[in-house]
């Protein structure tokens, strides 16, 4: 549990970070909270000869809610998300999800940017960001660009982000309607056996909008367009929920691990999603 030797950098601005990334290419990595990266370095699964700490880089923190748009700096921690009163009101699903990540100690260090940039299918925020249709802002040598969360994930630990780019912030429209983040895990501090993020819009007795994403049930987060479509225009009754779950199950591709075999995961995914839809609908 001792990492290979590395050089440590602590730049104070984005330009400094990008210069280092350009200089060392593949051999450099940025570190946010370090709670995914450091364990991998200690296990020597990740070798990072040049480690660039983002803690002192200006302009990466903060949470703003303006004109219906929420913008969260990459270095905002999961604890920040939990503690921010405005955010809890504007997008309560974030708080609900963040409270189910790891344990309080990890949440004080782990950042939103690290969680979405990491590319680990076990991370909870990527699925949630797909559910919210968030945009990730990336800054690189060629300037700034924006990538939709729904287009960001390619495979486990493989994302749209180029090696020399830094994810600086995440933004999305404040969600309306009912929400739920349901997660089954083996214990505190565990990644999901299955988790589901659901946002539902409601007018009268009708579901007007539905967005559904799932975590740790494929090598990437799964936003299931078909599952959402199955709920839209319905009264979210038993039949509609069944159809949505069936659609979602067609989009996931879980693998066996210590949490259990595939059949179990598929079953639990269905149960968790059902509960998330019911809970979101009850809150809508």
């Amino acid at each position: 549990m001792i990492p290979a030797p590395f050089d440590y950098y602590r730049p104070t601005d984005i330009a400094g970070v990008i210069a280092l990334l350009e200089e060392h290419g593949d051999d450099a990595r940025v570190m946010a909270g370090g709670h995914s990266l450091i364990p991998m370095m200690k296990l020597r699964m990740a070798e990072v000869p040049h480690l660039i700490d983002l803690q002192d880089v200006a302009g990466l923190d903060g949470i703003s809610i303006e004109g219906g748009t929420i913008r969260i700096g990459a270095m905002a921690t999961q604890a920040d998300l939990i503690d921010h009163a405005g955010l809890a009101e504007a997008a309560p699903i974030l708080r609900e999800a963040a409270l189910q990540i790891a344990d309080p100690q990890v949440r004080y260090m782990g950042t939103l940017g690290g969680n979405v940039a990491n590319g680990d299918p076990g991370n909870d925020m990527p699925g949630l960001m797909q559910c919210l249709d968030a945009q990730f802002t990336l800054v690189g040598p060629d300037g700034e660009r924006s990538v939709a969360a729904r287009d960001f994930y390619e495979a486990a630990y493989m994302t749209e982000r180029a090696d020399e780019e830094v994810l600086t912030s995440v933004s999305f429209a404040a969600p309306a309607g009912g929400y739920a983040y349901e997660k089954q895990k083996r214990k505190i501090g565990d990644y999901a056996t299955a988790a589901a993020a659901v946002q539902l819009g409601k007018e009268g007795a009708q579901c007007t909008a539905a967005s559904i994403a799932m975590t740790n049930l494929s090598d990437v987060p799964v936003w299931s367009q078909a599952a959402g479509a199955a709920l839209q225009g319905t009264s979210v009754d038993e039949t509609a929920i069944k159809a949505a779950v069936e659609a979602a199950l067609a989009d996931i591709d879980p693998t066996e691990d210590n949490r259990g075999p595939v059949a179990f995961k598929r079953h639990v995914a269905g149960v968790i999603l059902t509960r998330a839809i019911q809970s979101a609908w009850a809150r809508a």
């Binding site: 949490r259 179990f264 079953h267 639990v268």
Partner: peptide
Amino acid sequence: HDHWRIWKIANDLGLH
């Protein structure tokens, strides 16, 4: 008796 093994008990007994 972790989650999946309990689930399997129920599954094998036809409770799903």
